[in-house]
Each structure stands twice: as C-alpha cells, then as structure tokens.
Design a protein around this nucleic acid. Structure first.
Length: 247
DNA sequence: AGGCCGATCCTCT
DNA sequence: GAGGATCGGCCTA
C-alpha cells in the first residue's frame, strides 16, 4: 500500500517539539492511522487526550511515568518527539502516548479516545465485539453531524456502538492492535511506519479542559483535553471544566 | 448514570 | 511486595 492511499498528510516533527501542555489540545481532530499487512487500514480521529509533564517542568507531575527520571520502561519518553510510548497496565491493557518536546524532555500525550473513521469492522473484531448490528435508519451519528465520518460500506454503527470501539486508552489500543512489543518507540511521522499521526484538515473548535482521569497523584492539574460534546469521549458524561477555543 | 469489584502482571522500590 | 495513566460486569437508582 502506498502512502498516497492514507488519509491526510503526515504531521511535522516541529509540531511535537513544543511544550506538551500546548501540543495536547492541538492534537484533537488529528488522525491516528494504523496499517497492518498489505491492505488493512484502520484510522480514528483523536477526540480526547491527556498531557503528562516531564520532570524538567516547573509544575511537578507525580502522575507522569517520567516523574522520577529515566528507567528502562520510560526511556522512549526522553527521546525525540513524535514517537509512540506504549506501556502495559493492570496486566491486561496497553496505553499509547505520543512523545513531545526536544530530546531530554519527557513531556508526553496520552491518547484516551478516538472516533472510529476507517476499518470499523476490523476494530470490532480486534476488540472482541460482535460486528455492529444493522440499523435500518441512516446512521444517526452522521445525520446529526456530531461525527465527521464514522460510516463505511457494510457497517452502520449506532452512537453506542462507536463509543464501544475506541473510547478509553485501553480500548483504542485494542481496537488498533497496538502493543508494547510491536509499537513502543515507533516513529509516528514516518511514511513507512505501521502507526502514523496525520492531518486531514479537520478543524477542532471548542475544547473542554478538565482534570485527568484515573490517577492518584497530581489529580487536580487541568491537563485533560477533549472535543466538547463529542460522544466518543470516555469518562463521566458531565465533567467539570472550562471551555477553550483553539488557536 | 454512577459506584464497586475482580482480573492480572509488569515495573520500580 | 505494592500498586497502577483500565475494563467489563453487576449492582443500585
């Protein structure tokens, strides 16, 4: 498969070499593209992320894996920007981050939720979910305009079905078949990579900023960013936070 | 819609 | 040896 068949354009390295708390909200709306084998293509739009601050930062972030400095597990975080940091958690899930900031600084963005865009059947299979039931009506999500694409031949997903595919950091890795063994350290900005971040020109507008989910330390930092009102976002429906316009 | 629970194992102390 | 950037099932409401 040639790169010409992939949606959008590869992102530039400089985009990720900035402070992580600035990069994180700007990642919303970008595509995570997964190529597998000769023909399989999966893609999802990033709708929810969290920033984790490196130990160089003025604000201490005890929730970050880099908090106590480099270890064998987190060494990728201290390397160049635009690479995947994938780790295993609770013995049964993977989480994927994108490294940010110049070499030596370990700011990282955790990907928390995707809106499925391409390869929905394969995602359902990867997740061990039944192929989405057929819906008689025109895809409700697309009709309401909440979703940008989310429909392809042979798969008509309800909002609930879409949410089950890749909403949550563990779920999105399972949906795209992302593992630590195969993908930790992969360059996301290389056209030959099995995992890429791409920009198809989607314009994110209103962003909701809240506390991060599922952590004990530094729990009050406002470092979770999601597309406001997007149904594929994970976590509690109503979460306190402030709205922010991008750019 | 939200809270509690168990599964399961790697990483760092 | 403790605990974790989670998930899905089951419970109450």
């Amino acid at each position: 498969m040639s790169a010409a068949h992939l949606p959008g354009r590869l992102m530039k390295r400089s985009f990720f070499e900035d402070a992580v708390e600035h990069v994180a909200p700007c990642l919303l709306g970008k595509l995570l593209v997964r190529r597998r084998g000769e023909s399989e293509l999966l893609a999802g739009r990033i709708v929810e992320v969290e920033a984790y601050l490196g130990p160089h930062h003025a604000t201490p972030d005890a929730a970050a894996h880099s908090y106590r400095g480099p270890t064998p597990r987190n060494q990728v975080m201290f390397g160049p920007a635009g690479h995947a940091y994938v780790y295993a958690i609770y013995g049964m899930h993977f989480c994927m981050n994108i490294t940010c900031e110049p070499v030596g600084r370990a700011g990282c963005v955790l990907l928390r939720a995707l809106e499925p865009v391409l390869g929905l059947d394969a995602m359902a299979r990867n997740r061990g979910l039944p192929r989405s039931r057929q819906v008689r009506r025109k895809d409700e999500a697309t009709r309401t305009g909440i979703f940008s694409v989310s429909e392809e031949r042979g798969f008509r997903a309800t909002k609930k079905d879409l949410h089950a595919l890749a909403s949550g950091p563990g779920r999105l890795c399972q949906a795209l078949a992302i593992t630590r063994a195969a993908h930790n350290g992969v360059d996301l900005l290389d056209a030959r990579s099995p995992l890429q971040v791409r920009d198809d020109g989607f314009g994110a507008e209103s962003v909701l900023v809240t506390k991060r989910i599922g952590i004990r330390h530094a729990a009050d930092l406002p470092l979770r960013f999601c597309l406001a009102d997007h149904r594929c976002v994970s976590g509690p429906r109503k979460m306190e936070g402030r709205r922010m316009k991008l750019r």
